[in-house]
């Protein structure tokens, strides 16, 4: 599984990445993380507000930092 964190490096993006890493660990999923920080690339995913969470090239969420439970559910569903 490839998890991408979209965002130009703001505090919220770091928070989201932390949550996603924790979720992956708890779910026991083998995932690699990528940070997408350039705007043209971020926008190629079709979102306008950061942070964004992309799992295997499908956008799961954008514009807010979800709770840990939400992140876990989004990642578990994508498995």
């Amino acid at each position: 599984m490839v998890i991408k964190i979209l965002g130009s490096g703001c505090a919220n993006c770091h928070k989201l990445e932390e949550l996603a890493r924790k979720a992956v660990e708890e779910l026991g999923i083998d995932a690699t993380f990528e940070k997408v920080t350039e705007y043209p690339e971020i926008m190629a995913f079709g979102i306008m507000s950061t942070p964004g969470l992309v799992v295997d090239d499908s956008v799961k969420m954008s514009g807010r930092v979800p709770t840990y439970e939400q992140v876990k559910r989004l990642i578990a569903e994508a498995r």
Binding site: C10, N12, Y39, M43, M48, S49, T50, G63, R64
Partner: peptide, 16 residues
């Protein structure tokens, strides 16, 4: 919802 950190993607998205 708007924060200045997303002003740029918002602007590009609107123009696009």
């Amino acid at each position: 919802p708007f924060c200045s950190c997303s002003a740029v993607p918002l602007f590009i998205g609107f123009v696009e």
